[in-house]
Computed example of a mutant assay.
Amino acid sequence: MASGRYDTVVFDADGVLVAPTDPDTSRLAIEKAFRTFGVDRPQREHVDALVGVTPEELARICETYGVAPETFWPERDRHLVRAQRRALHRGQKPLYNDVATLQSLGTDRDLAIVSNNQHETIEYVLGFFGVEGLFETVYGREQTVEGLRRKKPNPYYVERALSDLGVRNERVLFVGDSNCDLAAASEAGVDSAFLRRSHRAEYALDTRPTHEISSLTEVSDLRPGTG
């Protein structure tokens, strides 16, 4: 491997490789999940919270409706998986054009994905766009409460990806578009690049990333610790 550059690049998926899922798509899927348990009119704040919920919030919300989190969460995810597949087929969740640069980036680097989306969804997205061959290892979360606990900012899946690849942390870059991505990278002991696409134009960062970029075309020029 060449010196002075990253040998491994790990990417978030939504907002980095593919457009984020519309929050309204997620809300409708969550409302369908509630109806499975006989709840026709869940509180709007609960539906909103369940778009990006913590395990503690999930437990409190489920207690309100008398449903076990371990029962509700897989049903919520099942509806989200279906909704995101429909969004893909309707052209509502496109692949970003600059993902094409990964073809050349991956010729002499290992590429991976670690996403907070369901693993089933990430695999479907990659197959839908025919880019699954670009990545050496891919992790989305399991559709369980334990998978929810393990999602970023928890470094669990990042560390699993690095273990799969057998790489040195100082030569790894994580590219993400959220504070939880930056936190997971920091906890895993790897450099980070914050990708500020248009949907993140006004996004405030809690911590300073190693790098900040506006396109994936910039990744190949980044060097360890030189942000």
Rank of each mutant, 00 (worst) to 15 (best):
G4R: 02
R5D: 14
R5W: 09
Y6G: 06
V10S: 00
F11R: 01
D12A: 02
D12K: 04
A13N: 12
V18F: 05
V18Q: 10
T21N: 01
P23C: 07
S26K: 06
E31K: 03
R35C: 03
R35F: 00
T36E: 13
F37G: 00
D40Q: 13
R41G: 12
R41A: 13
Q43L: 14
R44S: 12
R44C: 00
D48W: 00
V51P: 02
G52T: 09
T54S: 14
E56P: 00
E57P: 00
L58R: 05
E63C: 06
E63N: 05
E63T: 07
Y65S: 03
Y65E: 12
G66Q: 10
G66A: 01
G66V: 02
P69F: 05
T71E: 15
W73G: 00
E75W: 04
R78K: 06
V81E: 14
V81L: 12
R85G: 09
H89Q: 14
G91I: 11
Q92I: 01
K93Y: 09
Y96P: 01
V99F: 05
V99K: 07
T101Y: 13
T101W: 11
L102W: 08
L105T: 14
L105K: 07
G106C: 01
R109E: 10
D110Y: 13
A112G: 03
I113K: 06
I113H: 06
V114W: 05
N116H: 12
Q118W: 12
I122V: 15
G127W: 08
V131N: 12
V131G: 05
F135K: 02
V138K: 04
V138F: 03
G147E: 11
L148F: 00
R150V: 02
K151I: 13
N154L: 07
Y156A: 06
Y157T: 10
Y157I: 01
V158Q: 05
V158T: 15
E159A: 01
R160L: 14
S163F: 11
D164Y: 05
D164H: 13
R168G: 13
E170M: 07
R171I: 05
R171Q: 15
D177R: 03
S178T: 15
N179G: 06
C180K: 14
D181F: 07
S192E: 08
A193D: 09
R196H: 08
R196S: 09
H199K: 06
R200K: 15
E202M: 05
L205N: 13
P209K: 10
E212C: 09
S214N: 14
S215I: 10
L216Y: 05
L216F: 11
T217I: 09
S220F: 03
L222R: 07
L222T: 14
